[in-house]
Nucleic acid binder design. Structure first.
Lengths: 337, 337
DNA sequence: TTGAGGGACTAGCGCGCGCAAGTATCGATG
DNA sequence: CATCGATACTTGCGCGCGCTAGTCCCTCAA
């Protein structure tokens, strides 16, 4: 009878036994332990045997013994993940994998009833794409995670991805608009990001000498969009910068249903350059976030943190760019109508 | 000087020591080990002390000792994750968490250069939302994962989520349309899902006695949508069932730009009930999927597999529902124009 | 009084690995 | 020839936990 039990995993001890050497030697070879001298002959014998037997290190045991899990936990905001973002993450994951780390993504549940993953996984590093929500960083730290990005102690300028709103405002300003509104999203899950973008927009408006931006957080319903539009129209608003393309799309739809022409009577600009942005009628002006390389940057950031190196700086090509389409037009043209 | 080293994690031994009892007893209480009788007094003392000290079980040690990682790995296809799908996953994650399992999502990289996560994490279960790609299931099994969903040995009917396309076709048929096209997506990453949905649509058409559906896979560009529309119009098509809301939105946009009225001359129905679907002009008829319910179902499926129970059957309320909006109208109305 | 039968625990091994400390061998050096 | 320092290993502890195989009482029947 051949064994019917599931074949036990191959351990380092198996390799040692089969080669007639000690387990420690095998360990030293497999880990390239610094400060250990291993003859080239033994090294290759171990490596060959490991491959032959199909050895995989048991991460649980390694984590237990070393105290490091070699897991990097990436905390994602609760917003939808488009292809761009996913490719980034993939890229980061690949780069980290090469360095022997596993990248795991996680979105904390807002109700927070479940044990957050950083407690269960005991990652070496937890990094977030957005600033930490109140208490979140504390929770991570309480779980015994030594390294956290962004560092909750040293508030850094983490708005590298957020020059988009500024570009929106400047674009509308360039077109002659002076009464510009900012349309956020009422979805509580993206509240942080909305706040970040609104603040960036306000700063831009401020430096252009514009009045404070009328702002509202919309739900993705016709009623909500209409209400906001009515208010803003009454205030003389001629252009709206939207938090993202979805909100922009909602505004355009509602405006059309209200009999407002876009961009004739109202300019609308979105953010993110969703695939759909180019497909709406009218096509949507928006901000494209050049995500290429952002993934590798994240990986870089993670590795430097884990290994205690200084953090890399942001590559300049990660900047956002303006995509001009049909939903924005000069204010003068509006006046002519 | 207070200690500057990071405070060691609290272990079960700490609890035992602080209570003057044995570590085993603590373990029995914490795990509710069956077959062990523990007095109520001791039980509460342990539990209280655990809470007081802030004890968290070390998963690495537990995994090492028990041989089970209590990790469920959910393999995601490479398509974008909208709110619906994410909520679905979140729901599943929550349910699993309650049962003591951590749900980790993972998208294998197509180039496959990185070590797949199922090798590193040693999950108790790996489940996929789509059928396994060739070799993938073998790779999972080779990593020593005992339980895999869907079971690669027994090909099952896994099209539980795909009555949506049938509803699209029946809806259009009910409205009097007889020349219906199916619009897929040319994105290779969602090819599997597109095929699944198209097949479901074709089956529905077939059972209604309709001719074979003209079908095309669109890119989300105006040119692509226009080309498909021209071809279909030449074939007398009066209605289109789209693979998802994005494609539907693209078609509507292109149709309007071509001077076709929607739904006057062309009915379009989407799939998934994206938030944006209700915001486009015209608002999009679509198929709503009960994602939260689906998430719970997934969790159920996972738990039953891990614990060796028989798999649950699909709950009836997980069915898709039709959302009628303004982008579909009776064929007769079309004829009147 | 003895012994059986639990209830309520404890002692301690083993999971697979990292790593500190030790040992054997050998050529070089004074 | 003794000593020293490399080189190339081996011995063995400890990481925190699950769990088997006990031990020690206390009660109750014979």
């Amino acid at each position: 009878m051949s064994q019917t039990t599931s074949p036990r995993r191959v351990t380092a001890a198996d390799i040692a036994r089969s080669l007639g050497i000690s387990r420690a030697t095998v360990g030293f070879v497999l880990n390239d332990t610094p400060g250990q001298t291993i003859s080239e002959a033994t090294r290759t014998r171990v490596l060959d045997e490991a491959k032959r037997l199909g050895y995989r290190t048991n991460i649980a045991a390694r984590a237990l013994a070393s105290g490091r899990s070699r897991i990097v936990l990436l905390v994602l905001p609760d917003w939808p993940l488009d292809f761009n973002l996913r490719r980034n993450i993939e890229e980061a994951s690949l780069a980290l994998d090469e360095a022997g780390y596993a990248l795991i993504t996680y979105t904390p549940h807002p109700t927070g009833h479940a044990r957050p993953l950083w407690e269960t996984l005991q990652p070496d590093l937890v990094m977030s794409m957005t600033p930490w929500a109140s208490g979140q960083a504390a929770s991570v730290r309480a779980a015994g995670v030594a390294r956290i990005i962004p560092d909750p102690d040293h508030a850094t300028v983490e708005e590298w991805t957020e020059d988009g709103p500024g570009m929106q405002i400047r674009h509308l300003h360039d077109l002659g608009h002076r009464a510009i509104a900012f349309a956020g999203s009422a979805d509580p899950r993206v509240a942080d990001l909305v706040r970040l973008r609104r603040r960036a927009a306000e700063q831009a408006a401020n430096s252009l000498g514009l009045d404070a931006l009328p702002a509202d957080d919309l739900e993705l319903t016709d009623a909500s969009a209409r209400a906001a539009l009515s208010t803003w129209r009454a205030q003389g608003v001629t252009a709206v910068a939207a938090y993202n393309d979805d909100v922009a799309g909602a505004l355009v739809g509602a405006a059309l249903r209200m009999g407002l022409s876009v961009p004739g009577e109202l300019s609308v600009i979105g953010h993110d350059d969703t695939p759909l942005a180019s497909m709406l009628e009218p096509t949507l002006s928006t901000i494209r976030v050049d995500t290429a390389g952002l993934g590798r940057f994240f990986a870089d950031l993670a590795l430097s943190a884990v290994e205690g190196r200084p953090a890399p700086s942001v590559a300049p090509e990660l900047r956002a760019t303006l995509v001009e389409r049909a939903s924005t037009a000069p204010r003068d043209a509006t006046a002519l109508r």
